[in-house]
Amino acid sequence: MKIRLVDSGVFTPVEDIEMTLTAPASGFYWLDADVDDLAELQPLFSLHDLAVEDCLSEEEQRPKIEIYENHYFIVVNSIRFDDEEIFLRALNVFLGRHFIITVTKQKIHELRSVKPLLWEDEVSTPDRFLYLLIDLVTDNYFSVGDRIEARIEKLEEDILMHTKKSHLSEIIGLRSEILWLKKVLGPQKEVINTLNKKDLRLIDDQLQKYFSDIYENAVKISETFETYRDLMGNLREAYQSSIANRANEIMRVFTAITTIFIPLTLITGIYGMNFDYMPELHWKYSYYVVIGIMVFAGALMFYLFRKKDWI
């Protein structure tokens, strides 16, 4: 656990946690903790049992805000996208009059990114810290959205240029991720709306108006992911259409080959190959040569069909 006194954006390390129990002459205390530190923090700051239980729970936490007597408990989800899967990491925040406690199970990028902003804005209040932190979390959804859009465009291009069976699993997987993420965005949007509209004594009235800007961004993000969901539906239709067109193309090739060999088969079927002078009939190795030719022809066709991804 790291404890800092933040005054006008300047960080001063604090060694004695007992100092954080009383308000400093200027600034506020930021306690950056993990879930194991809650056993020490709960009795010192009278953190509510239900809030601590939510932090310790192994289940995925729904974004929310809980109002308690001497502090607020806020849960928001930080997002991360590694080009294969979307990850949401819970950021638990206890907001007090002279302190803010951030509790996480994994490292969250926004907690590092907020530090230069505190210096730049000369932050001296915990509610201002909360605003900047949630603003960073929300903005990160835009950057992840841009990467998802780029992946959709790349997938669409690949499908149109060269359709593969693996594309369907990619479409289904990405669409599931988007639907899941959109489901999570609803509660998070409501948390930000509460910070914007509800009368909260631990958040300055002037600062509270700034949360409306974050709320507008949250609405835009929700609408953007709704668009992505529709795009994934269109992408699946494009995949199915491409597969159908490709099947028609394959059938066209097979039909052409069959048409070429039908007359030859008809001739050999009716007239036969019963000639008196066929040198190969009395050759010692004719049988093995014919079998070898058939095996080679079958293997060659299999290789060509696999190379063209027809089978």
Rank of each mutant, 00 (worst) to 15 (best):
G186S: 12
I172P: 05
D205L: 02
K197A: 14
L185S: 04
D199A: 12
T194N: 12
V191S: 05
K182T: 08
T194P: 08
W180Y: 14
I192G: 02
Q206L: 14
S176E: 14
S176L: 13
L179S: 09
K197W: 09
K183W: 03
D205W: 00
L174S: 12
D205I: 11
K183C: 01
I203A: 01
K189Y: 05
V191T: 07
D199Q: 15
R175P: 04
L202F: 01
I192N: 02
K182C: 01
G173Y: 13
I171V: 03
L200Q: 08
D204E: 08
V184Y: 09
P187Y: 09
L200T: 02
L200V: 03
K189A: 01
D199M: 12
Q188I: 04
S176R: 15
L174H: 12
I171G: 03
K183H: 11
I171P: 04
P187C: 10
D204S: 01
W180S: 13
Q188P: 08
I172L: 09
V184T: 10
R201Q: 07
L174C: 10
W180Q: 10
L185G: 04
R175C: 02
K197Y: 07
S176T: 13
N196L: 10
E170D: 11
K197I: 10
L195V: 04
E170K: 11
I171A: 01
R201P: 00
V191E: 08
D205F: 00
D204M: 00
I171L: 05
K183I: 02
V184M: 13
R201Y: 00
Q206V: 12
I203Y: 02
K183M: 04
L185C: 03
S176K: 15
P187W: 10
L179Y: 11
V184C: 10
G186R: 06
N193K: 14
G186L: 13
E190K: 04
E190C: 04
K198E: 14
E177Q: 15
I178Y: 06
N193S: 14
Q188V: 06
I178N: 06
I172E: 04
I203F: 03
L195T: 01
K182G: 04
D204P: 00
E170P: 01
I172S: 08
I192M: 05
P187A: 11
R175H: 13
E177A: 07
E190S: 08
L200W: 05
L202R: 00
I171T: 03
L179N: 11
P187L: 09
D199E: 15
L174D: 07
I178L: 03
G173A: 14
I192D: 03
W180D: 11
W180K: 09
V184L: 08
L202V: 06
P187Q: 09
K189G: 11
K182H: 12
N196S: 15
D204K: 01
W180V: 00
K198F: 03
G173H: 13
L181E: 09
N193T: 09
Q206H: 13
Q206E: 15
L185F: 02
L185E: 12
K182V: 04
N196F: 15
I172F: 10
I203R: 08
I178S: 05
